[in-house]
Nucleic acid binder design. Structure first.
Lengths: 245, 245
DNA sequence: CGAGGGTTTGAAGTGCATCAAATAGTGTGG
DNA sequence: CCACACTATTTGATGCACTTCAAACCCTCG
């Protein structure tokens, strides 16, 4: 029949997105009916490296969830410099806080490798949040966690050296309480890790070598092996108010 | 009427706090009855310079509003360094985000000059926010604004020099679109402004003198006169993604 | 294979921190 | 009101961390 094919496709698509959204913390304790509405309004976009999702100061009409891939949030100044706001991957949400401000994004967003992005109208969130208490509470958890991270980030810029910031970054990549040697991959290019940590690529390269020399670490391309996590921790967490040794 | 003096006192006290809370953005569009409940549960504390309100990692039972005065939010590392998270004055709120995380403060709070602080149980906020949609939306506005500020703060640490950060700080102290010379007072000690901006007191002193020499600024103790705001703006906002010239 | 971006390395410069000491400012008790 | 102690601020000299500029190297991909 004539319209059903389309309608079925849409139902299918919605369904796939529905299942994804259902497991997103933002939709914890949200009724299926509401999630279905979000899924219906959502668009899944396939993006390639370099794609711009939105620019700083753009009118904010959507928020985004990264289904898979990586995105870079950034700001640019008049004199051409760039500051990294964040670098996000699977299951991370961005663009949501604009809703609670002046409906303008306060950073730009760019895809840094092929990714699948879910795009959801902020208007729908506005409507739903007006009715659904849990949605707001989930959003508050989300924003509070960001604030904590930003505070830590700022503290690190103030008190830690470049090698320490790298060390902290590596420690966060370690699964958890492993004790033996851990091998991990840098999640994105060294250049990007550098600017994520607020330093130049050259500084990053040199600082990483310092870690290699003084602590027990092996580097091979983008693979890094931490032979003794506790040595790294002792050196890094000394200058961090969060990681209590 | 027969109920006691005590009850009247309490009613009066509640009333004074009530009027204050009613004008606090967090309680915008909140029914009087709800605000009264907050006023009843609130305690007004007179604090003196140096008083500790809570410490980093403490269990979070209350949030606070500064009725008058100044408070410093800070973190300390094992090796004895301190990072300033924020410095707040009249009408600012702190300690609220702990509610949406693990119920621990993620910084310490200390009073830096004689102040009046309103102390409100987080439990009450939790209960009310569960019922009252607007309360959550107000809280979301609050947290979103903080995130924006933190992002800007981080950007400044990355891209601005010490003199520029001071210049930006001074510009924010300027009322608004005045064009003539503006004289303003530093809101707290130079030492504190320095650490608020992530630099040492010595650096602050020297950087301020640089501003005096190169841009048209006069310094006399804690009074600073900006003779031409636009000169300062041009120099500072070049390296900031927010202030579009 | 060759082009182009990512990464490393070296040399030199800059900005901020550190250490130390002088000066100004503030509050105290006599 | 002054002398004292104490803190905040300034100034100078020096050192270090990171940046900048430049060049080489490496790796990937068309």
């Amino acid at each position: 029949m004539n319209y059903s094919q389309y309608s079925n496709d849409k139902a299918l698509a919605s369904n796939s997105v529905f299942n994804y959204l259902k497991n997103t913390p933002l939709f914890d304790n949200i009724a299926n009916n509401d999630i279905i509405d979000f899924a219906k309004a959502a668009t899944v976009k396939h993006c390639e490296k370099g794609d711009i999702i939105f620019l700083h100061h753009d009118e904010a009409l959507y928020f985004y969830i990264i289904k898979s891939g990586w995105a870079k949030l950034f700001r640019q100044t008049l004199d051409g410099s760039e500051a990294i706001v964040d670098i996000l991957n699977d299951d991370h949400i961005f663009g949501i806080t604009a809703l609670y401000q002046d409906n303008r994004y306060d950073f730009g967003a760019q895809i840094i490798c092929n990714s699948e992005i879910i795009k959801i109208p902020l208007d729908l969130l506005r409507q739903k949040a007006h009715i659904n208490q849990n949605l707001s509470l989930n959003a508050l958890k989300f924003t509070s966690a960001i604030i904590k991270r930003k505070n830590t980030e700022l503290e690190h810029r103030d008190l830690q050296t470049a090698p320490q910031r790298i060390g902290c970054f590596l420690l966060k990549l370690c699964a958890s309480d492993e004790t033996g040697p851990i091998t991990l991959h840098l999640p994105y290019s060294k250049t990007l890790v550098a600017s994520r940590l607020g330093m130049k690529a050259e500084t990053f390269s040199r600082a990483l070598n310092k870690l290699k020399d003084s602590l027990d670490i092996t580097i091979s391309g983008s693979s890094i092996t931490i032979n003794d996590v506790s040595i790294l921790e002792e050196n890094v967490c000394q200058s961090c108010s969060l990681c209590r040794l």
